[in-house]
Structure formats: structure tokens, C-alpha cells
Amino acid sequence: MVKIGVVTFPGSLDDHDAIRAVELAGATPVPLWHASDSLEGVDAVVLPGGFSYGDYLRCGAIARFSPVMSSVVEAANQGMPTLGICNGFQVLCESHLLPGAMIRNEQRHFVCKDQRLRVETKDTTWTCDFEAGEEITIVLKNGEGNYQASPETLKMLEDNNQVVFRYIDGNPNGSSHDIAGITNERGNVVGLMPHPEHNMEELTGPSLDGRKFFSSVLKFLEARV
């Protein structure tokens, strides 16, 4: 069975939600601890949301130096599917697995809402079960979700089809080009600010649109075997 690791940093809030999402998708969740450099033989990794290391310095800046991230960076550079959700997206940027950076929301307020997104590409390990142009609703909750990058980087992301999700029906945090999520050139590393792990069950989410993130990675991994 496919094993998906979920990293817990000090301050992670949504690691158990991510573990639950992996279970619901039919994979085996493997808890990974920030102070260990072992990935326990997993097939994919999720960096969950929260406030790793209290968001001191910058969001994700200290987590980037934890022992587990050395192994995550190495594995991701070799093609392992890696998903960063909210704080996990911030960690991916700080680790230089994804370009750009997160700053305070434009309106300086914490945002918590059901957010409409457009899937811009299905050419990643985490979106191959979607359709390009598909519109979904995913929970959003962040205070520093304002994605920014240089004009050259933004042009590169647009030209290379590396913008994975875009906010629609309003930009909640001021992110450049309405970007809600991006991928690396290879398509195995995806980061986004909204929380698909909160959209897995009717009882607790506004939609079931989070399921396709996990069915996508399973589809990719099973096809690779």
C-alpha cells in the first residue's frame, strides 16, 4: 500500500487532519517527526498547516533547518511527490523547493473562509485527477498568505504553466496574479495556501474537493509502479 508521510513540526496544527485525509484516500499515513532525518520509506510527503516553531523570524524559516527537511529536500529533488499546505507552502518556499515568498496579508487581517479556486493545470502529481479549468471550493485560513515574487519569477511561473491554483471571486490576501498555489518545474512539488485536508468529509468541510488532491497522488504513484 502507498505510504504518505505527514511531518509534525512544533506548532503544527493540521497534521492530524492531513493524516485523516491520507487514511480516507486509502493510503497509509506515516507520522514524521521534525527532529528525525528519516522519511521511513514513504512514497510521498505532506507538510501540514500550522505555525511551525511559532512563526518566529518568518513563517517556515526555522522549520526549513529541521533535520527532516534535509531529507525532504533531497527526496523532492529526486522526484518524490511533496505537498505543502499553508505553513507547509511557506516551508517549501523557505527551503527553495518553490520560488517566491509569503508576506502578511494585504489587509493585515487573518482570513478564514471557504475560498473558490480555479485549477490551472493538472500536470502535477497532486492535481492529475482534476481537469484544467475546474473550479473548486477549499477552506482558507491564514495571516501570511500573500504570495509575492519578482516580475521575472512570476513570468517564469506563468510561461511554464507552474501556477496550479488561482483565487477566483476575489483575492483574499493580495497574492500576485491571484496565485493560490504553484509547482516546481518537474511537477512533483506543489504548495498552496488553502487546506484540502479540511475538504474530505461532508460533516466537516464545505465540499469534498480535497479528495482529488490525494486521489491524484495515488493515481500518479500507482501508474509509476
Rank of each mutant, 00 (worst) to 15 (best):
F89V: 10
P48N: 13
M1D: 07
G205E: 09
G60F: 01
S12N: 13
V7C: 04
W33Y: 09
A25Y: 00
T121P: 06
Y56G: 03
T8N: 03
I179K: 13
V139S: 06
N160A: 11
T121N: 14
K113F: 05
I85N: 04
E134A: 10
T82C: 11
M1Q: 12
W33K: 09
L154K: 04
E185D: 12
E222V: 06
I85H: 00
T183D: 00
Q107Y: 04
I62T: 04
C86I: 04
G26S: 09
T204D: 11
S175I: 05
P81Q: 14
P81R: 14
E131Y: 06
V45E: 12
G205S: 10
R108P: 00
D14F: 03
A149E: 08
T124E: 05
A101I: 11
Q107T: 15
Y53F: 14
V111Q: 10
A61N: 07
F130P: 02
L154M: 06
G210N: 08
D159S: 14
H34Q: 07
V22P: 01
G174Y: 03
Q107M: 09
F165D: 06
Y167I: 10
S38F: 00
D178K: 02
D55Q: 12
S207V: 04
N161F: 02
P194S: 08
L97K: 01
F165Y: 14
F214P: 05
E144T: 09
E40H: 15
G26C: 05
S216V: 06
N77C: 13
N161Q: 12
S207C: 01
E222A: 09
N173Y: 06
S150H: 00
K212W: 02
G49W: 00
A27V: 01
N142A: 05
T153H: 04
T125F: 07
P48V: 12
S71A: 15
L208P: 00
P172M: 15
R186I: 13
F110N: 10
G145T: 12
H34G: 12
P172H: 09
N105P: 11
A149H: 04
K212V: 05
N146M: 00
V45T: 13
S70V: 08
I19N: 03
F213W: 14
A44C: 13
G174C: 01
M193V: 09
V119S: 06
D15C: 01
A61S: 10
R211V: 14
Y56R: 15
L57S: 02
I179A: 07
Y56I: 14
H34V: 02
Y167F: 14
N199D: 14
L57T: 06
V139W: 02
L97V: 09
H96V: 00
A75F: 07
Q78P: 01
